[in-house]
Simulated assay, not measured.
Amino acid sequence: MGIGQGVIRGHAITLRRFVLTFWRDFRLGKAFARRGGGHGAFDFFQKPERGHEPTVTQDFTTDGLFTVEYPDERLPVYERFRVLPMLVYDTEDGNVRCTSCNICAKVCPPQCIWMTQAKSPKGTVVPLPEDFYIDMDVCMNCGLCSEYCPFDAIKMDQNFELSNYERHQTHIYSLQDLLVSSEYYSKTHPDAWASAEQVAERGKVAKKKDQRLQKALSAGRSAPAAKPSPQPAGA
Rank of each mutant, 00 (worst) to 15 (best):
D90W: 01
M115I: 02
R80V: 11
C98Q: 05
D90I: 00
T62M: 04
F132D: 02
L87A: 14
E69R: 07
E49K: 08
V83G: 01
K106G: 00
F66G: 08
V125E: 11
T116F: 01
P129N: 07
G38C: 06
V96M: 05
V126T: 13
F18S: 14
K122G: 10
T91H: 11
C112T: 07
E69W: 09
F22S: 09
K119S: 11
P71L: 13
F22L: 13
K122S: 14
Y70Q: 04
T14D: 14
P109C: 12
V126S: 01
V88C: 10
T99I: 09
P110S: 07
L87Y: 01
L87F: 11
I113Q: 13
I103T: 09
K119Q: 12
Y133F: 15
W114M: 06
D72M: 08
C104A: 11
Y70A: 11
V19C: 06
D43L: 04
M86D: 01
P48N: 05
V96N: 03
R35W: 06
P76V: 05
T62V: 09
E49Y: 00
G37T: 10
C101E: 01
T99R: 11
V125R: 10
A118C: 07
P129R: 02
D25C: 06
A118I: 04
F42P: 01
K122Y: 04
K30W: 08
E92F: 01
